[in-house]
Each structure stands twice: as C-alpha cells, then as structure tokens.
Nucleic acid binder design. Structure first.
Length: 130
DNA sequence: GTTCTCACA
DNA sequence: TGTGAGTA
C-alpha cells in the first residue's frame, strides 16, 4: 500500500486486549471470537497467543453489530464484504463496469437525497435504511 | 486477574 | 451463543 497517513497507521496498531474490546463494543468474548472464526475481524496475536485489536478492528466489529441488529445473518454479512471486495477489484481495473455505473448513479441519487455516502475505508457508520 | 481452546447436562 | 473446564 502507498502513503498511509499517521492516523491510519495508528488506527491500524493492535494494542487492545479482548477485554477492552468487549467493553467498547458491548459484545461478548464468545461473539468476538466467533466473528473471527467466520473470517471477519482477524486480530493480531501476542507471543502468548493473546488477541490484540486495533481501532479499525473496533469499527469493524461495531459495523458487524449494526448489520446483525438490522437482521442480517453471518451469510449476509459475508456476502456484503464479498461484494465490497468485488468493487475494490473493479476499481483497480480502471475500466468502468456496468455495476460501477449503476453504483455511481445510485450514489448520486443518495447525495441528492441528502444522505452521506460512505467510502470503503471508513466503513462503519449509521445512516438511515436506503 | 485475564485470555485461550475445547466441549456440551 | 452461553458456560464451565483446565491452561498459560
């Protein structure tokens, strides 16, 4: 990756033990570990095999929590991330695909409607249902 | 005291 | 997803 800002670097630093993450996210250790099993939010490990999370991981967990509260299951969440990766891949292959065009038009619609569109980097947020 | 993995009356 | 066991 290129020029990662100082803030991005710090938000990527894994310095939080699971206990702190539990209090910050209101999630149980069981849930946090389960989401890891599902391939979402994989924390770093210490020499003693302790999980260490970054601020970005916290955001990621909060986002998952939101999806769950909206009634989306694990499969659905995975699908959402798979779709996000797909978009990221399309973006790199510089040519505009049909789905790109559709997404751009959709984003424009949201902007006109007065909603803020969120980038793929600052994932978590709370916007009204579309 | 905290976290880890594994198992399940 | 909860919880207890036995560790590190």
């Amino acid at each position: 990756m290129s020029a990662m800002t100082e803030k991005e670097l710090q938000r990527s630093k894994s310095v939080l033990p699971i206990g702190t993450v539990m209090r910050l996210t209101e999630l149980t250790a069981r849930q946090i570990r389960y989401y890891e099993e599902q391939g979402l939010v994989i924390p770093q490990r210490t020499d003693g095999n302790r999980r260490m999370y970054s601020l970005n991981d916290i955001d990621q967990l909060l986002e998952i929590k939101d999806y769950l509260n909206d009634g989306i299951n694990m499969a659905g969440i995975k699908a959402i991330y798979a779709q996000k990766e797909k978009r990221a891949a399309e973006r790199k292959s510089d040519s505009l695909t049909d789905s790109d065009v559709r997404r751009i038009l959709h984003d424009e619609f949201l902007n006109i409607s007065g909603f803020e569109r969120h980038s793929a980097t600052s994932l978590h947020s709370q916007r009204p249902l579309e």
